[in-house]
Structure formats: C-alpha cells, structure tokens
Write a protein that binds this DNA or RNA. Sequence first.
RNA 1: CGGGAGGUAGUUCAGCCCGGUAGAAUACCUGGUUUGGGACCAGGGGGUCGCAGGUUCGAAUCCUGUCCUCCCGACCA
Length: 492
Amino acid sequence: MSKEITSRSENYSQWYNDLVLKSELADYSAVRGCMIIKPYGYALWENMHAALDKMFKDTGHVNAYFPLFVPKSLFEAEEANAEGFAKECAVVTHYRLKADANNKGKLIVDPDAKLEEELVVRPTSEAIIWSTYKNWIQSYRDLPILINQWANVVRWEMRTRLFLRTAEFLWQEGHTAHGTKDEAIFEARQMLDVYADFVENFMAVPVIKGTKTANERFAGAEETYCIEALMQDGKALQAGTSHFLGQNFAKAFDVKFTDKNNKLDYVWATSWGVSTRLIGALVMAHSDDDGLILPPKIAPLQVVIIPIYKNDEQKNQITQKVNEIIKELKALNIRVKYDDNDNVRPGWKFAEYEMKGVPLRLTLGSRDLDNNVIEVARRDTKEKSTISLTTIVESVKDLLYQIQQNIFERAKEFQRLHITKVENWDEFINVLDNKTGFVSAHWDGTSETEEKIKELSKATIRCIPFDAVEEQGKCILTGKPSNKRVLFARAY
RNA sequence: CGGGAGGUAGUUCAGCCCGGUAGAAUACCUGGUUUGGGACCAGGGGGUCGCAGGUUCGAAUCCUGUCCUCCCGACCA
C-alpha cells in the first residue's frame, strides 16, 4: 500500500477518502454505497457510543430496540415524513429465493414468494415506534416515554461518501412522548444541548446551535434544531438534529392520552439522532496530511509506547520499565498500548500511529533509561520533548488533557475566523467562493428567497442561530427587511 | 440519474493506441544483517487481466453488451 496520502489542499475529497482508508477506520464494501467499518473505526464509534449513551441515561432515557422492517401501510401513515423519505427507501418485496432452472448453481427470486404487503427497510423509525407507542399510552401516568435506540438505518442515496453519507449507517434515534407541548420542546432543546456538549467536549469539534428553516426541516417536524460544524475545507456539516414533532405523529398513529382533568388529547413528540457521520466530522475537522488527529477522550488508543533497543538485554530492561508505566497508566483508565513488535522498525511505527491519530507517543530507548527520561511526542502539535521517568504518569495525564483542549481551541479559532458578516450579494458570493466557511447575512424569511439563493450560490441556510441578535437589515438577495442574521454555507 | 475517469498480483499501478510467453513497485514467505522518523541484501510464492458474447490462427489489448467503483453535478430528513 502506498504510504503517502493526498494533500489536504490539493483535493480535499481525495485526501479525506485516503485518510479514512489508510487509517483503517473503514473500507468500501461490495455493496453499492455501503461501508465496512473496520475494528479501529468501530472502536472509535464504541467510545462515542458509550459517552453519548451515558449522557442519555443521565437525562432520564432508556434504551430499547424496534424492528428493521416497516410495513408500507405504517410507513405511509405520517404523510410528510413518508413523502420526505419515499425516494430513498429500500423495499423488501419477496421472502424466498429458489434454484434457477435455466442456470445451474444460480438463484432467482421466487415469484411465488411475493409479500402481500411490502416491507420498507427503515430510513428512520418514527412510524414503527409510534405505532407501538399507541399501545403503550393511555393516561398521563404513562408519560413521558423517553426511549432511545441504537440501530442501523438505510437510505438509498444517489451519491455516497465514506461516513458522511452511506446507504446504511449506524446511529441512535431518540423518540419521546410527552403530555404537554412545552415539555416536548424542552426535551428537544435539552437533547440538542446534549449533542452540542458531546461534540464539543468529547470530539473537540465546535458547533453552532440553531433552528432549521422550513425548507431544511425534518419531514414531519414542527421545528428542527441542529448543531452545525465547520470542516477544514470551509464546508459546513450538520452534526446532529433534534426535532419537535408537535402532534403530527400522534395524530397519524392515533396516540391519545387522558390528562389529569380527564380530557383526551394527542401526545407531543420529539425525535433526535446522531450517526456515524460524526466520525466523518471528526476526521475533517482535525486531521492533517500526516493522518488523523483524534481527541484523547474518545481515541481508541490514547498512548502508544515504542521501545528502541539493540539487543534482547536492552529490550528486557525497557520492557520491564514500560510495564511499570503501563500499570500506572491503566490504573488511571488511560488506554495504552506497548508496541514491541519486532517486525517493523521504530520509524515505521511512528508514521503508523500518527496516521491513526494516537494522541501521545512515548519512545523509550536504552539511552533514555540511563538518563531516567523518556521522549514524548504530541500528535496535535508534533512537538517532541524529553520528560523525567519519575513523573511520566502525571505528565501523560496532563498532556492528554492539554491535547483535548488544544484541538478544540484550534478548531474553535478556525470556526471564529470563518464566520463572515456580509451586507450584499457580491460580498456574499465572494466570501463563499474565496474565503469559504459560514456567512452571516440577512434574509427576508421566505422559502422562495432561500431556494433562489441556493440555486444561485449553492449555499444553504445552515441554521438560524439561537444567539442571533435582533438587528435591522436588508435581505442580501431581495433587499426586503430582516430583523436578524442567519448562517449560510456550502455544506456536505 | 447526467458528465468524466477507471476495473490487470493482497495493494497502488504500467502494459492496450499498433493483437503474439503476464509486468513493476509495494505487501507477503525464508534466511541473514539491522532498529532514535516508513531499513538493506539474497532467495521465494502469488493473476480466470470485472463479467458475457463477438472478430481472429491467436485477445489484457479490437468490437458489442453488461456489472461495479471513484470523482464532478443533481438528490441528501
């Protein structure tokens, strides 16, 4: 395998692809648009999964699991939702294969095994879950229902990209039912905060919280809240969404409850999800031409230790010392690996672990052992320093913390430098074409204008930020009045 | 679904225009020397040239069809 990856500045897409493949996060599969998540990528996902799952449970949620298949009649019950997803659904029509009489050793779909009702492979689970909630909810005493599921979903997209848009992907989807509108809105906002907290504090990717415009809203939602992240090529990426679904699904699936006053009403709903797409965001937000840069909190490996020796005696001395260090690091729950593989040389290992984004590398040689020191190399800054063996464990702990902070600060600064206020159309296009990033501009609030801007510039309104300040201005396209700025960007 | 590029060893690719013994690098295996930034020497194994037809004495190479992948668009809750 070629060792070099494409440069970030030359071809960002190619660089991203190379990186995902060569860092062994994932691979292409034989199935169109699908992806194989390799053990290293899955270990990363497991760490993300664990952190998120804890946050969900800390906010009162429980996990459950619902079926992969959705009968078509259920799927079509909520019209807006069904219509939104209809053109990207995989559909099961038969339940059996049989030997092909004309072609020995081959199989054909058995025409006699046609399903009476087609099954849609879930692109999202609202339909199947709400048809279930109908049976679970009668009284306000049954509410709220705060359920999350970890699952795979299938969306037959025209064009796919590793992690960012695959035909099948892993995600979590929360589906909650509430007795009041306010409680449901609170839930949707709370979960958006959970996502922002996770993405910023674990993944070290800064995000902007806001509301989607009607055009960009989830099919079937009253309001969609989102977190938007910025990639190093200046394009935006939707990192997570949380929807206030109103009573749309309750009405579509006839989910009513009796309140304290013995009054019958439809329940209020939310749904929220993040997916393996976050891994794509992580890669594109931090990595450089030498490979991945992973934040310590979720890196599968936080520290790698590489020995340098000339003979078995030296190796044994080093290994003995390393084992002491590992024992202490493990006691602090630090994920550490000692790579004493004799088949590859140190230089090879250095490059390999840099490609994989391991935050800290310790190198211990006989020379160091004599001086009671060890070499420490940071992945984020590529700085190398020599540290006393006596305090190494404390130093590692400190450095991991510093790396986590530094990666976030760096990305935050990049984001700050790439939010540009513009006042007119020429500036708008100029920033999108040359500077890239988010563009903060006035918009007249209509779907038509939004659509027109998208057509002319390929930029979409990423969100109406929660912290947008009241300010009089004129729409960059129509000149009509506007009272706050929204964030535009070209996006993935 | 439109435009472009491609499918040959595990991987990256050359060979194709102009038909005639299946190639390189890298990876892998064996032995040895090495080991502080992707080592070196010697030897070795590995391929239905995407698939199906056709032309030809002969096809990786030419023709037709087909499937798949990547890139750029369109689509993307």
